[in-house]
Amino acid sequence: MATLDLAELDIRTVNRRLQGRTGDPNESAFEVLHPMGRHTLAAGINRPIDVTIRGHVGYYCAGMNQQARVTVEGNAGVGVAENIMSGEVRVQGYASQSAGATGHGGLVVIEGDASARCGISIKGVDIVVGGSVGAMSGFMAQFGTLVVLGDAGADLGDSIYEARLYVRGKVESLGADCIEKEMRDEHRQQLAELLERAGMDARPEEFRRYGSARQLYNFKVGNIGYY
């Protein structure tokens, strides 16, 4: 495993190496030391490598991730795994606001709590939060899944499109056009698979599902011929 120490290297040097733009292209496992809350660490990786960051990171860690598996042994600042396309980003501590924002694919796991607007505007990513999520999580979420083992803050799923939200604990309030929906077999199965991928110990039967009432947005299925 290659060791990159941020006490000695700057962020761009470390990110270039992780992105495979410098160093041995066959290296496939990295550990990053002394992140000290710095921003944009491990952003823009597009290759199947393992990255372990030993400590707390700042904003936009592992942003735009593709293929890589990035683990943060600590907390993450705003926008961890923002716009993730594929691969897996795991935060062992808690995540600040907008975790997994706008993500298109892949898996984001927050083992602790995630703050406000977790999964805002997601477009296909799966997010699993071991703790609770803050207010306005799943805001304008278009596609993908947000699984919360703890509670959800106010206005969950406000203005949601077609993403699925699963919450095991209490929901403080639902946002505009977000409603509770029936848990059918297909949902329990999806949830079981996601919990397993995330390594979370919980039973699908304990969760409730929330999604769009489809009254707010203008893409009525009946109008499909007009688009």
Binding site: G37, G93, Y94, G134
Partner: peptide
């Protein structure tokens, strides 16, 4: 931002929250 707290003595064992 967290980085402003990252050098405080004993921060590694601090309770950290938003």
């Amino acid at each position: 931002e967290y980085r402003a707290l990252a050098r405080l003595p004993g921060v590694e064992n601090a309770r950290i929250w938003e």
